[in-house]
């Protein structure tokens, strides 16, 4: 048991503390840089976009290029709005949700019930991989499946198919995670009373985890609302309001893409983007709020 008595080693504490400070300042600066785009982007959208937003903008369909050109030449506000995009987005996202929610919920429940089973492991992995598939590839798939073989042309249904495949893995994951957090005792209490299993799911699990499920669904919707690329390959776009799922349909992002490519309409990109951003942020914040309240 020898003890090194003369351990007078220089500790350089001065320069080490300086390094410590400099590093922290670097962290703060880089973090500020990281978040600055969100402020810059939203700021830009508001400054450039708010003037075009009005009731007309929400309830009228897109003007044609010629109308837009004349009004610009006369120094007037571009007439019309993006009602065809708003209704298209509503139609396709709603349809996608109708397809994806039941499948996603049931798959999530299956995974939760069969944690250790190999098949569940396979399904979980495939769902994870599916979540990483680029949306443009999902557009290709929906084109090959629906545009070519079901609706024989570009359609809202094809667009919804692509969006639904996008939403599916997110809902599966959030359902499983939500149910995992429900104490087993609640479930067992019901089963001990002899309640059939499907009733336990419908009357115990789903109501108990409702806010968690809702958070997952809203987040998945907020992720697909802004999707453009897969819809270019499937829904194509339309200058009129369309409620027929077998017909080409527009959406807000698709309109932004059209405006971007049309020099006469380009003024409309900011207001459309502002509206789109507002919807996405609203879904995002609402779902976060629900999640926060649950805790």
């Amino acid at each position: 048991m020898v003890k090194e008595k003369d351990s007078v080693i220089k500790d350089h504490s001065g320069s080490r503390l300086l390094k410590d400070k400099i590093f922290l300042i670097g962290i703060i600066i880089f973090s500020v840089i990281t978040i600055s785009p969100i402020l810059l982007i939203i700021g830009k959208l508001i400054v450039k976009g708010y003037r075009q937003i009005s009731l007309d903008f929400l309830i009228e369909t897109t003007p044609n290029t010629f109308e837009a050109m004349t009004s610009i030449a006369n120094g007037e506000r571009i007439p019309g709005g993006i009602a065809n995009g708003i209704t298209g987005t509503l139609l396709m996202v709603l349809l996608a949700a109708v397809i994806a929610i039941p499948i996603g919920l049931i798959t999530g429940i299956y995974l939760y019930e069969n944690q250790e089973k190999r098949l569940a492991g396979v399904i979980r992995n495939i769902s994870d991989i599916l979540q990483g598939v680029p949306s443009i590839v999902l557009g290709l798939i929906a084109y090959l499946w629906v545009v070519k073989h079901v609706t024989q042309g570009f359609s809202a249904l094809a667009g919804s198919t692509a969006l639904a495949i996008m939403m599916l893995p997110m809902i599966v994951r959030s359902t499983e995670e939500t149910f995992k957090m429900i104490p087993n005792a609640i479930k067992e209490a019901a089963l001990a009373l002899g309640v059939p299993y499907y009733r336990v799911i419908l009357q115990i699990l789903i109501p108990t985890g409702f806010s968690g499920l809702l958070t997952g669904i809203l987040l998945s919707i907020s992720r697909v609302i802004g999707e453009t690329a897969p819809l270019m390959l499937t829904a194509l776009g339309s200058s009129v309001i369309n409620w027929d799922v077998t017909k080409p349909t527009s959406s807000i992002p698709l309109l932004i893409w059209e405006f971007y490519n049309d020099p006469n309409m380009v003024d409309l990109i900011w207001s459309s983007s502002l509206l789109l951003m507002g919807i996405v942020l609203a879904f995002n914040l609402i779902s976060k709020q629900i999640a926060a309240r649950r805790r």
């Binding site: 973090s31 990281t34 978040i35 785009p37 969100i38 402020l39 810059l40 982007i41 830009k44 959208l45 907020s222 992720r223 609302i225 802004g226 999707e227 453009t228 690329a229 992002p253 932004i256 893409w257 971007y260 990109i269 900011w270 983007s273 789109l276 951003m277 996405v280 942020l281 995002n284 976060k288």
Partner: peptide
């Protein structure tokens, strides 16, 4: 800051493109 970083993930690709 965390919320703002999350919001970055929520901005649609096409809006990033415009910006």
């Amino acid at each position: 800051i965390g919320t703002m970083v999350d919001l970055l993930a929520g901005i649609p690709s096409i809006v990033y493109g415009l910006w």
